[in-house]
Amino acid sequence: MDIQNPKFVCRDVRVHYGDFEALHGINIDIADRGVTAFIGPSGCGKSTFLRTFNRMNDTIEGARVSGSVTMDGQDIYDKGLDPVLLRARVGMVFQKPNPFPKSIYDNVAYGPKIHGMTSGKAEMDALVERSLRRAGLWEEVKDRLKIAGTGLSGGQQQRLVIARAIAVNPEVILMDEPASALDPIATAKLEALIQELKERYCIIIVTHSMAQAARVSDKTAFFYMGDLIEYDATEKIFTNPGDTRTQDYITGRTG
């Protein structure tokens, strides 16, 4: 599929865990704005692939990534590049909400603080408010910024984690099954938030819910057994898939 001004360009990306090859040479371009969904049965490598975009695979012992992943034309696996700086540009939201056991304010302020992005309390206050607003959480928590982030409900926690990521001013937000631990109402709120955020950020979402992929994403990539099978506009994938394996999966025959 042709994509203008891709944010990421991946060529022949392979990931090994020890002797096991989890991804067998993925080629994909990710659009600069909008939502790209990765779908596929569990164990197909979609989460592993997601983690190559912010080099979180580096933290797993025995994991090796080969091939090239470029972000705005810059190789993110370049030896000279500090993964720490990459991760500030590429935020991530995990399957289980993982706010720090600190206050809501400190949760959001942690990223800006370690990057030294603000000076003084007033700037930080403004940044925290802006991030919480963008994550759609401000109205719910503005009076209790000092309570522990772990005291919020699951859906609020997940939006707090998004606010936390936004505060670092990233260009990309990776989401690894962000709604899998949430109830339907919280999921709907989260999906609405994703729709808002896609104007501003490049969002890549891994999901095992095809309905969710259909609802929130602009483009969908189908992974199967460590291979990228099909990648196209979401409409096309769900109405007229080009591969029988995709067809089988979205109709529920596999996975």
């Binding site: 370690i114 030294g116 992005m117 000076s119 700037e123 001013n169």
Partner: peptide, 26 residues
């Protein structure tokens, strides 16, 4: 801190990061 603040004097809060003019360490 002074040098950092003067280098980003004209930009919006929290946006000067890592894009060429960003600082490696806080």
């Amino acid at each position: 801190l002074d040098r950092y603040l003067s280098s980003r004097a004209h930009e919006e809060i929290g946006t000067t990061l890592l894009k060429g003019s960003g600082w490696h360490s806080q």
